[in-house]
Design a protein around this nucleic acid. Structure first.
Lengths: 192, 192
DNA sequence: CAACTCATGTAATGAGTTACATGATTGT
DNA sequence: ACAATCATGTAACTCATTACATGAGTTG
């Protein structure tokens, strides 16, 4: 009667299902995606991905198709099974478990009262440079989507929309960090 | 000649040093702090804390003082050693290692194209409620500090300032999440 | 009388990183 | 010659969660 929780896999497993659901992929391709665009909010390395794919296969959520190649190593292209597709669909709208974020820079900030002022300035300045670069990168990518996709009224069930939605969050996040870093530096510059 | 990295402990170890450096504490007190105010950016449970305190003690970074009690269990109050204090001071301004954040809600958003629209709305609405509550809680706490502390010109080396700085980041973060969730809901409400 | 606070630990399991291992092709 | 790309795996280790374990005093 109530909402039973059908935990078929770990969150990483669902990350892989989500990627494979957009198009059949090899473990190698998944490792690239979980590094650069998707890796911004869910990161994993190949050493975690290959064993997880084996688990998904044993659970009947994905099916590999072996592809022989002559010039490069053979590969396996994974696709969702019907079971995998419905597991993904269910998981997507279940409330996320409270995840305890860990932000090392904030942890350092908490103890900044003990720090050398000059060293502190250097830290926040380099962080500002890093985050500004990330922000600009996100914005460059976003310009491609922008008006076209989102202005379309029935967009929210398209991959283009969900891509843009995550990007938008990334931009908002980085913008906020940059503003905060600038505020920090303002207060660290007052040397008196 | 160059900047050698003096990794004396894990990041959790430095989290504990940072807390103990503000005032000698028991493992129990540390576990409460790493749950509620500090836990917003670095969370840990008692089962991780007690073994870590033992490691810090063996490394000579903290020193426990046993306190016998009659009405409640005995306890150990940990204080920083000189070595512990300088380890903390060094760590604070070292660049944080690129931490790969994991945001389950964004991962779900990425695959939202597959979801049932009504279920999706419910998800983002409940997230909005949660984050609005957190934001209000942060803002209530911030009102106490506000003008008084930060307006003081030489504040940045005080615990009150660093507390306020982390809080401010928390407020900015939650505000951004709330704005993004509202944007998401706008697009999910268009049912056509 | 049940739940909560104070107080400290250990054990088992799961998640994630780093390192080990191999090997052809292509570009600098 | 050297590094990078494609391609897949395993092993050792660290980090983190959940569960096990105990026990007095207070609050509802």
């Amino acid at each position: 009667m109530s909402g039973l929780t059908p935990v078929a896999t770990s969150t990483l497993g669902y990350a892989l299902l989500g990627l494979i659901g957009r198009g059949a992929s090899t473990g190698y391709e998944l490792s690239l995606l979980l590094k650069e665009p998707v890796g911004f909010y869910w990161h994993a390395r190949h050493s975690q991905i290959y064993p997880e794919l084996a688990k998904l296969r044993k659970a009947g959520l994905v099916r590999p198709r072996p592809v022989r190649q002559s010039d490069r190593p053979d590969k396996k292209i994974y696709a969702l099974t019907l079971k995998g597709r419905s597991a993904l669909k269910e998981w997507v709208t279940e409330p996320p478990r409270e995840h305890r974020s860990r932000d090392e820079l904030l942890l350092k900030t908490f103890s900044l009262w003990i720090a050398d002022r000059k060293a502190a300035r250097a830290l926040y300045e380099s962080e500002l440079t890093r985050h500004r670069a990330t922000l600009r990168r996100h914005q460059r990518v976003a310009r491609a989507y922008n008006a076209r996709v989102v202005a379309s009224t029935r967009g929210s069930a398209t991959k283009a929309f969900t891509d843009y939605a995550t990007l938008r969050r990334g931009i908002g996040y980085e913008r906020e960090v940059v503003a905060w870093l600038r505020w920090m530096l303002q207060h660290l510059r007052v040397t008196r």
